[in-house]
Design a protein around this nucleic acid. Structure first.
Lengths: 345, 345
DNA sequence: CCTTAGCACTCTCATCAGGAGAGTGCTAAG
DNA sequence: CTTAGCACTCTCCTGATGAGAGTGCTAAGG
C-alpha cells in the first residue's frame, strides 16, 4: 500500500489487467497485457509495473508464477478513475423505453418486477428492484369500501400517488352509513400524516369511534394488516438467478448464494443502504459488510416517487462489466424516475 | 425390469437402501445394509438380493465395486408401497397452526408467501406456493372507487371471497355519479360470469357505456391491467433457495438450478400440472418432463378456495425425506384449506 | 434349495513423481 | 529507464502405485 497516486502508465496497465480479467476470468500475465493492451512495452517492464501495482494493493498474485488478479481496491480505483460509464446503444435504449412504457399502467408491484426483469435481461446479471418505502409518504385520503359479506377493503392514497390497501373481515356486518362515517373520520385523522404516524394517530382516536367500526379500525391496525404498518409493503423483486449461477467463480461452491436470496428484507436493506440520493453507487466486494457478499459487487441507482426513493441495481461477481452496468443502471433509474414522476400530477 | 412383484425381504432391503442413502448421500453397500437394517442376513445374501433389485431397475450401481443408489423407479416403489407419511409432532403442528393464523388476516399474496416461508422452514427444502387461479371464479360484484386525481381503483370480488384489483388513470376526471353508474352497469354485466368470461362480456357492452366511463373500462380491459386478465394474478412464491444449494448433489454444478427459479410462469405450471385435486402427489426425477428437473423431486398438495385450487409443495433432490415431506405438505395444505374455507362465509 | 464364508477381482481414490508449460524475478547489457 | 535472457517456482496433467471398499463367484453347510 505504498502509492496512492499512480503514474499514467501504471493506470493504463491496471485498466488493461482489469478489462482482460473481466473477459477471461483468469489471472492476467504480463505477456497478456502486452498482447492485449495499448502499451508498447516489453513484458519485463510490465512486470516491473505490476510489482508496484501489487505493492499498492491494487492487484494480487494467487501464487508465484501466476498472473495477476485485480483486488477490490483495484476495481475501486478502476471504477473511480479509469473508466467511463458505457452508454447504451440507441437500439437498447429504445427497447428499454418500450419495456418500461408497457409497465406504466400497472401498480407498483408490477412495475418493480417488470423493471427487474428488464434489467436482468440487459445486464445478464441478477437484478434487484426495491419499491420506495411508503411509510414516510403523506396520506391524502382513506376509503373504506364494503365488499361482499363482512369484508371491507381499505385503501389509502398518498400525495405521491401511491396506494396501499388491505382487506379485513369484521366481526359483524357494517352498513354503508357506518362505512361512510368511518371513512370520513379516519380520513380526517390521518390525512396529512405520514403512513408511519398514521398508526399512532388512529390508535389515539380509536376510543372515539362508534362501536360498530371500532372493531374494523382495530383490525386495520393489527400487525398482519399491511396498510398502516410501516414496513407493510416494502416490496423487493429480484430476477436473473440463472445468470449468477453461470459465473465460473461460483461453479465450485454456490451455497453461499442461497443466503443472499433468502431473507428478502436483508437484501432490501443491503440495496437501500448502498444507494445514494441520486446517481449510481458501486459497492465492491468487501466494501459490503455482509460476509456472503464478499465476492460480489453491487451497482445501485435510485429513483424518486414523490418524496420517497426506490432503488434498483445489479448484483454480480466483483469481476463484472462495471462500465456497461453503471450505464445500464443509470439509464434505467433515470427512465423509471421520469415515468413515475408523471403520476402524481 | 424383470419383476414387478417383490418378495418381502426384497422390499425390506430396498427400504433399507433408500433410507440409508437419503441420510448419507452416498452409495449403499451390502455391508451397510446389514449393519443398519433390520435384516439378519449376511452381506453375501444381501448382495444376491441387490442383484435382483438391480435387475428390476430399482437400484443402480455407479460402477463395479461401488454400493447401490436408488433409481427413480426405486424411489417410486418406496413412495407407493414401502413407506407411510410421517405425521408431524404435536409441537410442529402447533407451530404451523400459529404461523398460519398470523397470516389469516392478510390478502392472498401475503398468505402465499407466508406459507412458502413456513414450509421451507419446516422442510429445509425449497418450498413453492401457487395461488389459486381466479379466472374460473364467478364474479360477485365490481366496485369502482375514485382515488385522488384522475385515478380509479377497481375491485372485483368473487363468490369464493377472493378479490382482484387494479388502479387505472383515466383521461379526464370522473365524478362520483359517473362512477356509481359505471359500477352498477359493470356489475350487472359481469356478475355471475367467470373472470375469464368477464373480459368478453365487457368488451361486448363497451359501446353502450356513456362516454366518460367508456375510456375507464377500456383501460381495465387492457393487457397491463390485471383485474380481468385471465392470468392477471397468478401468483407464485418460492422460498428456501439456501437449502437447495446446500445439498451435496448440487455442490458440483448448480447452474441448472437457475433455470428452475427464473421464469416463474413455468415453475407455476410445473407445480400446477403435477398436483391432483386432493391429497399429496409425488413426482420423482425423470417423471418430470422438464430437463432441469431430472434430478429433482416434487411433493405437491392442493388447497381449495371456493371452486378453485391452489397448490403448495416442496422441491428437492430425488434423495429427499419423502415420508416427512409428504406428511408436511399434507398437513399444510389441509390446514390452509380449512383456514381459507372460513372466508367465503 | 437357500444361505453363507472365503476369496479373487475390479474400481475408486489419494498420493507421488516427473515433465511440460506458464509466468515471474533478477541481472546485466543497451 | 528499458529490455533480453535465464533460472526459478508453481500449477497442472499424466501415469504409476497401493490401499480400501465392495462386489461376484464358488463351494461348503444347513
Amino acid at each position: 500500500m505504498k502509492k496512492v497516486q499512480l503514474a499514467d502508465r501504471e493506470e493504463t496497465i491496471l485498466r488493461s489487467i482489469i478489462e482482460c480479467h473481466v473477459k477471461t476470468a483468469r489471472p492476467v500475465s504480463s505477456g497478456a497485457v502486452v498482447r492485449h493492451g495499448p502499451v508498447s512495452l516489453s513484458s519485463a517492464t510490465v512486470r516491473n509495473v505490476m510489482r508496484s501495482l501489487e505493492d499498492a494493493g491494487l492487484i494480487h498474485q494467487p501464487h508465484t508464477s501466476a498472473g495477476r488478479v485485480p483486488t477490490d481496491a483495484g476495481y475501486r480505483h478502476y471504477v473511480d478513475h479509469l473508466m467511463e460509464p458505457a452508454s447504451l446503444s440507441e437500439r437498447e435504449r429504445v427497447q428499454i423505453d418500450e419495456g418500461l412504457s408497457q409497465l406504466s399502467g400497472g401498480d407498483l408491484g408490477t412495475i418493480v418486477s417488470g423493471v427487474s426483469r428488464l434489467m436482468s435481461e440487459f445486464s445478464k446479471e441478477l437484478a434487484v428492484t426495491v419499491a420506495p418505502a411508503t411509510e414516510t409518504q403523506i396520506i391524502e385520503q382513506v376509503k373504506l369500501v364494503s365488499l361482499e359479506g363482512r369484508r371491507v377493503l381499505a385503501v389509502a392514497t398518498t400525495r405521491a400517488g401511491m396506494t396501499r390497501s388491505a382487506v379485513v373481515s369484521t366481526a359483524r356486518w357494517l352498513g354503508p352509513e357506518d362505512l361512510s362515517t368511518a371513512t370520513a373520520l379516519v380520513t380526517e385523522w390521518v390525512s396529512g400524516e405520514s403512513v408511519g404516524q398514521a398508526q399512532d394517530a388512529l390508535r389515539e382516536h380509536l376510543a372515539e369511534l362508534p362501536v360498530p367500526v371500532k372493531n374494523l379500525v382495530a383490525r386495520l391496525l393489527a400487525e398482519s394488516s399491511p396498510i398502516f404498518h410501516p414496513r407493510g409493503d416494502e416490496r423487493i423483486h429480484y430476477e436473473g438467478t440463472r445468470f449468477i449461477l453461470r459465473h465460473p467463480e461460483f461453479s465450485a461452491d454456490a451455497s453461499f448464494l442461497g443466503e443472499i436470496f433468502d431473507n428478502e428484507d436483508e437484501l432490501a436493506d443491503l440495496v437501500r443502504n448502498r444507494a445514494g440520493d441520486s446517481g449510481v453507487t458501486v459497492t465492491i466486494g468487501r466494501e459490503n459488510r455482509r460476509k456472503e457478499m464478499k465476492k460480489m459487487s453491487l451497482v445501485v441507482g435510485s429513483y424518486r416517487v414523490g418524496a420517497s426513493l426506490g432503488q434498483m441495481g445489479v448484483i454480480g461477481p466483483t469481476r463484472m462489466k462495471y462500465p456497461r452496468l453503471i450505464g445500464l443502471v443509470d439509464y434505467c433509474s433515470e427512465a423509471l424516475g421520469e415515468m413515475l414522476s408523471g403520476r402524481g400530477a
